[in-house]
């Protein structure tokens, strides 16, 4: 009887091994997807509770883009949407992957009263912040605001 169980166990072990004899899948070289560089410090509530992986250092273009974006934010606050858009478009050209620039572009176009452009940029911002809850909240409330104002 013990011999029988031994045979069963040996058989199971061999079956287990059958999975290893197949060739490992040849993967098509995956596209190197750059993680989104989010430079603006998010509110404390948005910070992950677990220790996150070491963030990738922002590229020089991303830093320059952020500088322009900051200047644009001041201009939006000062009620100067045309100047703000000028800065933000340059920021976008420097760092097209930054969703933040699109968010503020939507803000500036909203200030100018061009709702269709505001909606386009809002949508674009949303597509760049699909994993960041705090930004998603801001973008959603911006979208509501655009809809509300455009209806009035």
């Amino acid at each position: 009887m013990p011999q029988f169980f031994k045979s069963i166990l040996a058989g199971c072990f061999l079956l287990l091994l059958t999975g290893c004899v197949f060739e490992k899948p040849a993967l098509r070289q995956p596209r190197s997807i750059q993680p989104e560089v989010t430079i603006q410090a998010l509110p404390q509530s948005a910070q992950p509770t677990e220790a996150p992986p070491a963030p990738k250092a922002p590229t020089p273009r991303a830093i320059a883009s952020l500088e322009l974006s900051k200047q644009a934010q001041s201009l939006i606050e000062a009620g100067k949407p045309d100047e703000a858009i000028r800065y933000l478009e340059r920021a976008v050209n420097l760092h097209p992957g930054s969703g933040e620039n699109y968010y503020y572009l939507a803000e500036a176009w909203l200030l100018k009263g061009n709702y269709s452009q505001a909606v386009e940029y809002n949508t674009l911002a949303a597509s760049h912040f699909k994993d960041e809850s705090e930004w998603i909240k801001r973008i959603t409330s911006q979208k509501k605001l655009i809809n509300r104002i455009s209806k009035n």
């Binding site: 997807i33 750059q34 992957g97 597509s127």
Partner: peptide
């Protein structure tokens, strides 16, 4: 030249 590629947008999935 930044050397960066496009971020994967929503609506795109990868399958083996």
């Amino acid at each position: 030249v930044s050397g960066e590629w496009f971020a994967v947008p929503a609506g795109v999935v990868t399958r083996t």
